[in-house]
Design a protein around this nucleic acid. Structure first.
Lengths: 352, 352
DNA sequence: TTGAAAGCGTTACCAG
DNA sequence: CTGGTAACGCTTTCAA
């Protein structure tokens, strides 16, 4: 690959010349194809090894017509240069995607989320998994227009010209339903003023969940108490929590929709003088497994990154290998009620 | 890319035919090369757009002779199929590598850590960053033999045939020194029985750090108290901690060398009936930023994933773009003393 | 200004 | 059983 080398790589033809045979024979000998006599095969292999020959991967790909490379992009915070390290959700998506891809013999390329438009089109990809596409996402549009199969969410696919849609597959959640499930639970547990921390992006998840919260509030005749963060970050998130809890007639429940270390959030709430669940019911959208080890364990809403990634890869690979599969897969979020949003009795007991 | 399509992709030559010009003209018109009259250029562009033409990435790469793709592999737990999601260190390495690569116009491919030997050689890579190579790592050997520049640690490079070593660069730490620094600190803070949780792999980091601990114990005439984990995982790690603390004459200091959520560890220690730093001094090797928000804040040892990744990419890119740069970069670990391993006064006060 | 043709390094088809 | 030769799809040099 390296062009800057003084010594150019040894090519198939070099081996052929050195071994006194043709390119075909070398190719066959090395790939176990054809029916060469063992002697020829071994001779060629020896020469190849002696010369340090390695096939050029790019040339093989051009020949093969596919690259067995899948792209992965997290688009939620397109503006801010890549911030997914602290986000357990994206970490787990990356891991699970890589594992699933590997199991099918595919590699995974982490795609740029920002930067010169179209730069992603220079990467030789067989398919792409786009997580949290933004509204009218150009990446989804471009790949689909280029005929590269894409897995995204239903909205992203609906936004794309119908004639390019054929290569699109989707994985999706009913985000609104998930949010309402948590709100209903908190209300049933006695919460009257539920505060929410959400993201201020055009990703489907945040748009739908914020909308669901507002609708829910309207139905219940309640005043929304919501902080929308334009970017992730521990500082800002804790700050938002602090401000929400400092409001006059402070909330008696908190529901976070952005990732934040659960033990840390718990600790912060305590330092603000509130007990959980005594003064404040708590439910977190998180993939951090630490949530069930805290005291009290924290109720969590999970969007199943492992399952999602697995499904996305399967969808992509089915399409790539010519199998007619499902057009997509709808998941249900996983809400686990734990002691942090406990039943009303306990709260009444404490206060009475 | 997708071969399974009924409708084969439209190629350069198709556009040329449709526009009534030659391939050259199309290429020039689309790439802004040559000095075509504006009319021709626009005409070609219009036809290309109408046909939905997208250049084939693989073919361009073959022509270009490079792929602008960098491989990234975490080799520490080669046996276990990819377990880096919960590990803040690897997450941050991935993010930082991607960012740094992007800044140079390179993409990043996540490499398989296990699976059919050599399968990584089929991926068209310009360079590779191998984190925590194992002893005699075949991945490092193969890429170097193939003339693909590699960044790893010094040991990995030393193990490779000298004639292929030219394409190797390194980033490294003096792990032993880092470990001794922490042990010395804990001792100065009054610890007499320091327990350690480490990994049982052949990665440089674990080998050197475990050795340093044993040497330090020997020098001090102390009995080592160490748990070595063959694989990561919250359960196992907490279990190891529990066992170490349950020993007769229990340790008065704990130093973890494997990643574990700091707030969670603190919580666990407390549930075992020990206070930090009162009963137990605590220092963690971790990249989790939550460590400085706990109460008490936790002393941490960091191996600077951000800086390491940045340096690795720079080393790779310098080599690829023909610049003569450094052969490698030696880092010093970042040890931050916080209240969890506080000065002896406080411990005396509590106990007296 | 435009086009024909020569690569890039591999694999695969067919003659010999 | 082997070796020429034609793709794969693009860029670029060089003539016209």
């Amino acid at each position: 690959m390296s062009q800057s080398d003084r010594t150019p790589r040894v090519r198939l033809v070099d081996v052929a010349r050195a071994a006194g045979v043709s390119k075909t024979t070398v190719s066959d000998a090395l790939n176990g194809a054809g029916r060469l006599p063992a002697a020829t095969r071994e001779h060629v292999q020896k020469v190849a090894r002696a010369l340090g020959y390695r096939p050029n991967a790019t040339a093989r790909l051009l020949r093969a017509g596919h690259t067995r490379l899948l792209g992965l992009a997290a688009r939620e915070y397109v503006e801010t240069p890549w911030v997914y390290a602290d986000l357990a959700y994206f970490s787990q998506i990356v891991t699970a995607t890589t594992q699933a891809a590997l199991a099918h013999g595919y590699g995974v390329v982490l795609l740029p989320t920002y930067g010169p438009d179209d730069c992603w089109l220079d990467i030789p990809l067989d398919g792409v998994f786009v997580i949290d596409p933004v509204e009218g996402d150009p990446m989804v549009r471009d790949f689909l227009a280029a005929g590269v199969p894409v897995v995204a969410d239903r909205r992203a696919l609906a936004e794309v010209p119908v004639e390019t849609r054929e290569a699109g597959r989707w994985v999706d959640f009913d985000y609104g339903a998930a949010v309402r499930q948590v709100l209903d639970h908190l209300e049933a547990a006695g919460a009257e003023r539920i505060a929410v921390v959400a993201g201020a992006t055009t990703a489907c998840f945040h748009q739908q969940s914020v909308r669901a919260y507002h609708e829910w509030c309207a139905e219940q005749g309640r005043e929304p108490r919501i902080a929308c963060l334009p970017a992730p970050g521990v500082e800002h998130t804790l700050q938002a929590v602090t401000e929400l809890l400092a409001a006059p007639a402070p909330p008696d429940a908190l529901f976070t929709l952005v990732e934040l270390s659960p033990p840390l959030l718990l600790d912060t709430i305590r330092r603000l003088g509130r007990s959980v669940p005594g003064d404040l019911l708590l439910a977190c959208t998180t993939e951090d497994s630490a949530a069930c080890y805290t005291d009290p364990p924290i109720s969590t809403l999970s969007f199943l990154p492992g399952e999602t990634a697995q499904a996305a890869v399967d969808l992509l690979v089915d399409r790539l290998e010519g199998r007619e599969g499902d057009p997509g897969h709808l998941f249900s979020a996983d809400f686990r009620v734990r002691a942090s949003s406990a039943v009303p009795e306990r709260r009444g007991a404490r206060r009475g």
